[in-house]
Amino acid sequence: MATASAQPVMVERLPRSRSLRLPTWEKLTPLLLLSPSVILIAVFVYGFIGATIRTSLVRWNSALPDYTFVGLHNYQRLFQLERFQADLVNTVHFTAIFLAGCIVIGLGTAVLLDQRLRGTLFFQNVYMYPLALSFVVTGTVWRWILNPNSGVNVILDNLHLGFLKSGWLTDTHTALNSLGLAAVWQMSGFCMAMFLAGLRGIPEELREAARVDGANEWQLFWRITFPLLRPITLSAVIILGHISLKIFDLVYVMTFGGPGYATDMPSLYMWIATFGQFLYSRGAAIAVVLLLMVAVLIVPYLVWNLRGETEQ
């Protein structure tokens, strides 16, 4: 103000009229259009993440909200629980089966379908269809298939392959693998589609060049094709990885975590702790642990992605 009053009147006019001008539509439009989604995401995603973290730090362990701060006590208690320890082991085990199965089968089918033989379009669709089902449907069907008294065991019996019979979902040793089987069945088609897109994107010239240099088909695959598929593989790992960490519906339908804790998952226990036992703080703590687990997977990917973009 002091400087403004010191200036002569004529000089003062121009800047003020500029600063008073209303923002133009051009400038306002992007803000206007973005604001609803920004506000909604801020409240319904980040706001709720904040609320969950807060709930996990208090002593809300009944139907009555109780916001007495207890620090990390809920987490301490959680990691001491036999059930949650089993959950973490199961998650790692399941993720390993699921990722390995999807990627091996997905890559295998993609390579086969990339041979441009007759009928590839048909099989491409056949492999993709399971993806269109929800996990609930997959789970129900596979529960029937793996029922030890009626499903695949009966077929094995009729084929005189009785020694292959198994308790499937009812045996603690096979239950988690059986669960993985259903999940792989559903998601390997998705992996196949990603790899197929990747394979089609590799220019034929590169392979031609390698062939000219005397590489055999095996070397061609491992030295040319496979390295070029690395970004696709990484995307597949990220996408499948977070599905597997958060898996709930399949477990709920197929085993409900049983027998014992053999197929229990953090997400299922989160649901039971929150809505079955009214241990809201414990449920929130599990949710935060899950969030961190997914973040461990996603954040490096995002960083890698962003760096890639800035390099371009």
């Binding site: 529960r143 030890p148 008294n149 308790g167 979902l169 009812t170 239950a175 027998p259």
Partner: peptide
């Protein structure tokens, strides 16, 4: 009693 029960109880 468990030895006399079915083993597929979880299903």
């Amino acid at each position: 009693w468990l030895p006399y029960a079915n083993t597929d109880s979880s299903a």
